[in-house]
């Protein structure tokens, strides 16, 4: 198996706070890799660094052995990386279908003039965008939401809309930031099924999640962060029994 993403000695400060400290790890192609750790461990910062919203102070991020941290943030999705956000970032000023169609932005190229003049090339592309958006809505089992507005549907479905928007861009690597936050047991089950479905496409999944049961169930490899440092790494079975991890999660007296 080849690695699709890796970091080398990645470091990021916010003023005096060390958010990511000298972090190096690999993500294998086609795997489900989870990043866990207590609040403030630097998980979301790491996602913001990978997706280019933040720039590292030092160290490198490589995607398919090419530098990612030197790219502009809007170029990164064009390389095949999609992400979702912890605090739901769907567009309330658009319909659900339009939200998914935004996921096709990187696969379309009509400029403002061919759009304004309604040229044939643009009309064909627009039809293709709509068809693909519908295809991915069916794939993620949310085709019943076609034509609905975001405010008409529950939170759980809105989260699926956001994930579908990311999947619709047909990424090779998808970053899911706490997808199960705020979901109940049944809703989490639906989410888990969706994650497996995405993986079957050959997409690599990197997931940040607080729900330890979910993480232990789905991931093949877990990276544990604490205060921006990697304290453990490996398959769920090993990480679960790691002394440092238990200390971080349950308090040091349990590690004895």
């Amino acid at each position: 198996m080849e690695r699709i993403l890796n970091t080398e000695n990645l470091t990021k400060h916010f003023g005096g706070l060390l958010a990511i400290s000298n972090l190096s790890f690999d993500v294998m192609q086609g795997s489900i890799t989870a990043i866990i750790g207590p609040n403030g461990a630097g998980k979301t910062t790491l996602f913001n660094l990978i997706s280019g919203l933040l720039k590292p102070d030092s160290g490198k991020i490589l995607y398919k052995e090419k530098r990612l941290d030197t790219k502009k943030h809007w170029e990164i999705p064009h390389m095949g990386i999609a992400r979702t956000f912890q605090n739901l970032r769907v567009f309330a000023n658009m319909t659900i279908t339009e939200n998914i169609m935004m996921g096709r932005y990187t696969h379309s190229s009509s400029g403002i003039f061919s759009c304004a003049l309604n040229l044939k090339r643009y009309r064909n592309e627009e039809r293709d965008i709509r068809e693909r958006a519908h295809y991915w809505m069916e794939f993620m089992n949310i085709d019943s939401l076609k034509g609905k507005k975001l405010k008409e549907i529950p939170f759980e479905k809105q989260r699926l809309v956001e994930i579908t928007r990311a999947v619709a861009s047909e990424p090779e690597l998808i970053l899911l930031d706490e997808p199960a936050a705020g979901l109940n047991v049944t809703e989490t089950k639906t989410l888990t099924d969706s994650i497996y479905k995405i993986r079957e496409l050959g997409t690599t999944i990197l997931i940040v999640e607080h729900d330890i049961d979910l993480v232990m169930e789905i991931s093949e490899r877990i990276i544990v962060l604490n205060f921006g440092e990697k304290i453990a790494e490996g398959p769920p079975k090993i990480v679960r029994n790691d002394e440092k991890v238990i200390a971080v999660y349950l308090g040091s007296e349990f590690a004895e």
Binding site: S51, H73, P77, H78, M102, Y105, T106
Partner: peptide
Amino acid sequence: REENTASTLGV
């Protein structure tokens, strides 16, 4: 709506 989200979609 959200400039950062727009750029993570490639805009």
